[in-house]
Design a binder for these strands. Structure first.
Lengths: 253, 253
DNA sequence: AACAATGGTGTATAAAGTACACAATTGTAA
DNA sequence: TTACAATTGTGTACTTTATACACCATTGTT
């Protein structure tokens, strides 16, 4: 919890630098050990969580603001970002409004007002991320998609909307370049799809379909060393991948 | 063009009532005589056009704001509205900023600042609309989709993004209930799809596919009176239609 | 050497999408 | 009244895509 003085100082700065009434919240997806992960923050003295977020500087494009915010939380630059919704319920920030109302008058509390939050989701390389809490938070860490904690504010709604959007996007655009390591096996990629869609896919049909998109290159040598039969390694053909992003696929899983 | 006094008065009111930095712009689609139409405003003393838009009241949910704005321009209530993007380029409002800068100082001009605009698109019954210009506009009128005029600000981008979104939506959701009259013929509905997608569809395959969705009821009696063979009349089965909206279709056209 | 676990590949069937042709109705022009 | 053009209704063959399913190959373990 911030002291009264810290909050007032932050509020003064914010008023100078940021657009009023606008915030950004990001749902950052990563993939590791066959598990979909989401980057979350645990505020000081709280047991409910928040999505990484921030505000838009007065002369900053919103996409750039989202990038800046995520760079602060992850260390990553040039993140794959997708704006997906704006959340504008007047009561959505009730938590922040109530939190300090005894100690700091509303006029001096940047958080004690209505914010519209622009939702972005991001797909990032799990290993590239160095989670970094902000000044309001105790920890910043990955949480498993199938073991999400309770959220503050309306961040559960934002998270769920992002996941739905990602699922829809999966049906008409390729996904994976930002989430998989450079080289990966077909079963590993399939696991990603199964995790996002939360259902089993047929191994053989999955392979045929994915390869049919023509966005993968197969390495000469299979992966060695593991137990069992050595699987082939694949990597994304970036040019064709980008093209498929623009053109879009057809059909759904 | 407003007088200096009018602008200053409007600005004072706006500052009191509306959220800073937030605007809403709407792309209103209608369908009439086989033509897709978009509702546009021509500002006073201008030859370029604007989308109907407005601002969000301090304690108003944004969806309600969009409804209120469209009710003022169309007379319609309970419009089918879909939020599709937020436009946040810092320079997007340069036109409004420059327009009055000689006569009214920026601090007193509500428009002379940065706005983020929330884009909504609407599908409405052409005959239900009574276009009503706002105080800044000379006229409010339908324009043909294939004969769009030049736009002010970034409204061409907003319009084009809306159209793209509508096309994508067409592939996985039913469209038409809000745009067609209660009863219509299959060729009429096909024309709507062809207009939105801007391509010809096969008459027989279209019919099979649409009927396959199971969201249409066929009337007992064909339409009489016209030249040529009397076509059957169809209407949407509202329950199944709503269901399809929630569930979504598969595949693309 | 047999086995369990994993990965690669092919084939048969069902469903969906596409291309295409002919018959029926109605007003109009000869 | 009759031939014709325009429009609508319907069916069928073919192609592509999706789905279900089985067998073999490789590798470490027992």
């Amino acid at each position: 919890m911030l002291t009264k003085e810290q909050l007032i100082e932050y509020s003064e700065d914010a008023r100078k630098n940021y657009l009023d009434h606008i915030s950004i919240d990001c749902v950052v997806f990563g993939f590791h050990e066959g598990q979909m992960k989401v980057l979350l923050l645990l505020p000081h003295d709280e047991n409910k969580w928040l999505l990484p977020g921030g505000f838009v500087q007065k002369q900053e494009p919103i996409e750039m603001a989202a990038n800046r915010i995520l760079k602060e939380r992850t260390g990553l630059d040039k993140i794959f970002l997708q704006q997906f919704h704006i959340f504008g319920d007047p009561d959505r920030a009730k938590f922040h409004h109530d939190l300090y109302k005894e100690t700091v008058p509303d006029e001096q509390n940047w958080f004690a007002k209505r914010f519209l939050s622009i939702g972005y989701y991001a797909l990032v390389d799990f290993f590239g991320v160095v989670p970094q809490p902000d000044q309001f938070s105790e920890t910043c860490t990955w949480r498993d998609l199938d073991d999400m904690p309770e959220f503050l504010l309306d961040h559960e709604l934002i998270f769920k909307t992002a996941l739905e959007t990602l699922r829809v996007q999966l049906s008409y655009q390729p996904i994976g370049y930002n989430l998989m390591p450079r080289e990966f096996t077909m079963p590993e990629l399939q696991k990603l799809y199964e995790t996002i869609l939360d259902k089993k896919l047929d191994r053989r049909n999955f392979q045929r379909r994915i390869l049919g998109f023509g966005i993968l290159n197969r390495a000469e040598q299979p992966r060695k060393g593991g137990a069992h039969k050595a699987p082939y390694l694949y990597s994304f053909d970036l040019e064709k991948y980008q093209n498929a992003l623009t053109e879009g696929f057809k059909g759904g899983w």
